[in-house]
Design a binder for these strands. Structure first.
Lengths: 160, 160
DNA sequence: TATTGTTATACTCTATAACTATA
DNA sequence: TATAGTTATAGAGTATAACAATA
């Protein structure tokens, strides 16, 4: 692949080398995500979890308790999807819904002790898969990638 | 966001700061892709194109002529999807299917002169949107991001 | 009247599988 | 028998909208 160039027409402003078209970024990100997702999904499958379940566990492990609205906002998940994913997790005993005293509409979601266990187990079991995912990047490079990606994705936020 | 930590349980091997869970990479990539895709789709909409159409144009502009099978391989697109996308592009006059002499099953896809025009116009019209997409990264940082992302995504390839 | 969470519905995307015409 | 391309179908994923309870 990528053997020929400029087979079509004269040089133009956009006649760039390789994948330098700005639009290629979108495609590159899609394929990067596909690769990461298939690796990570493989690490979670033995635990009966999918990435979207783990997104909730990560957020709860990180932020503590959140109601479903804030949880959805935090992980960019539709509120209807939040309901289904929390249903799954609650059925598995990994999170609990807790009513709050001041507003009977709201239900806080908490990670359970068992949820924390599974969270840890996923990281232990997934370590080899994760190593394979990033092995051709050095540790510094990986950190740089995460940093740049984070700033690309959340342009308005200072911390994260 | 990201105000509390360790609200749950004692410190563990996986009790990392922030989004340092390996699994968070998948989620970060998803959101990075979502942000890029919505920006770039906005740049293509006035031209009546979607990202998947542009994926084909980029590949043809870059590699010259490809048959549909190789085209699908190059951009990780299912052969059935290739048919539909090439249908759209051909209807718009941006690519042409050309039979080859040696194998009457195969149809090469070529970008047309009008396809090159639209390719260039997309970059011209999209420039402000693209600037907005990456403005909080320096040029060097953007190049680094693309480089790391490319190596992350295509671990086995030397060039690209 | 607005909001939280739930349920139901519709729509898009993708993956699969059949089908044709060639080889 | 295998392959390139096409078409049709089914499944998953996502987005939308209606709904109930509460504020």
């Amino acid at each position: 692949m990528a053997e020929k160039r400029s087979a079509v027409g004269p040089a133009k402003a956009t006649d760039r080398p390789g994948d330098a078209s700005p639009f290629a970024v979108g495609l590159l990100l899609r394929r990067a995500h596909d690769r990461a997702a298939s690796h990570l999904a493989g690490a979670l499958r033995p635990l009966g979890l999918e990435l979207r379940h783990f997104a909730v566990l990560i957020e709860l492990h990180h932020s503590g308790t959140l109601n479903q609205r804030d949880l959805g906002t935090a992980i960019a998940m539709d509120k209807a999807m939040v309901v289904r994913v929390v249903d799954d997790l609650e059925r598995a005993g990994l999170v609990e819904r807790k009513p709050i005293a001041t507003d009977r509409r709201v239900r806080n979601v908490e990670i359970t002790a068992r949820g924390v266990e599974v969270f840890d187990a996923a990281h232990v079991n997934g370590a080899p898969i994760f190593d394979d995912l990033v092995e051709h990047l050095g540790p510094d490079e990986y950190r740089t990638l995460i940093d740049l990606l984070t700033r690309f994705t959340y342009p308005d936020e200072k911390d994260r």
